[in-house]
Amino acid sequence: MPYWACVAGIAMISCERRVNTAPAHFGYGRPATQQEIAAKAIAIRPDGKGLPAGSGTVQHGAVVYATKCAACHGVTGVEGPFNILVAPDTADAIPFDRAPQRVKAIGNYWPYATTVFDYVRRAMPFNAPGSLSDNEVYSVTAYLLYANKLIDSTAVMNAKTLPGIVMPARKYYVTDNRKGGDGPYE
C-alpha cells in the first residue's frame, strides 16, 4: 500500500470516530439579546420577580372589571356564565375533598396572588387577550382580591404589595406523593 493511502486511511478512521461522538455544542441558533428576552419574559414568580412598574386601585379595578370582565364572569364575579372568580374562604366551609360541588375561586383555592396578575395579563379578556395595560391589570387584580375579602378597599397593588398578600388556600397545598408500586393508593 502506498504511503499516501495509509495516511488517508488513518485520517478517515479518525474522522469517523469524531462524528460518532456528539460535540459539546452544535452552535445552532443565535444568541438572544437582553432586550428581546425582556420583551418576551412575562411570567411572574410568586416572590414577585417579573412584576412590572405601575400600580392599581380597587376603584379603578371595579370600572375595568365592569367593562371588560363582567360579561363572562358576572356582575360581582359569582354569576358566571364562565369561571366564578369570587368565593372568600370561610372557616366553616366543608373541605373540598368532601364537597365536589363547592366553588373553587381566587379567595378559597388560589395559593398565590401573583398568579392573578400573571394570568389576567397573559390570557384575559378572553376576546382580547393581552390587551390590558399593566396598570389596568394591577387594578383588576386589586378589585378581585378585594371582592374575595383579601385586601381592603383602599389597598394599592404594585410590584411591592402584591407578593406580600397571604392567600388562605396556600396552607392546604401539598406536593404530589404518588409513586406507583404496590403500596396503598394515594
Partner: peptide, 29 residues
C-alpha cells in the same frame, strides 16, 4: 423554583384527604 402559574394552582390540582390540595401531580397512573 416553580412559577405557580394558573394551570398548576387554580387548575390541574386536586383536593385530597383532610382538606389538602395536591399539586404538581405530573405522572399518569
Amino acid at each position: 423554583g416553580p412559577f405557580m402559574t394558573r394551570e398548576e394552582t387554580s387548575k390541574y390540582t386536586e383536593p385530597v384527604k383532610d382538606g389538602k390540595i395536591r399539586q404538581f401531580s405530573f405522572t399518569m397512573d
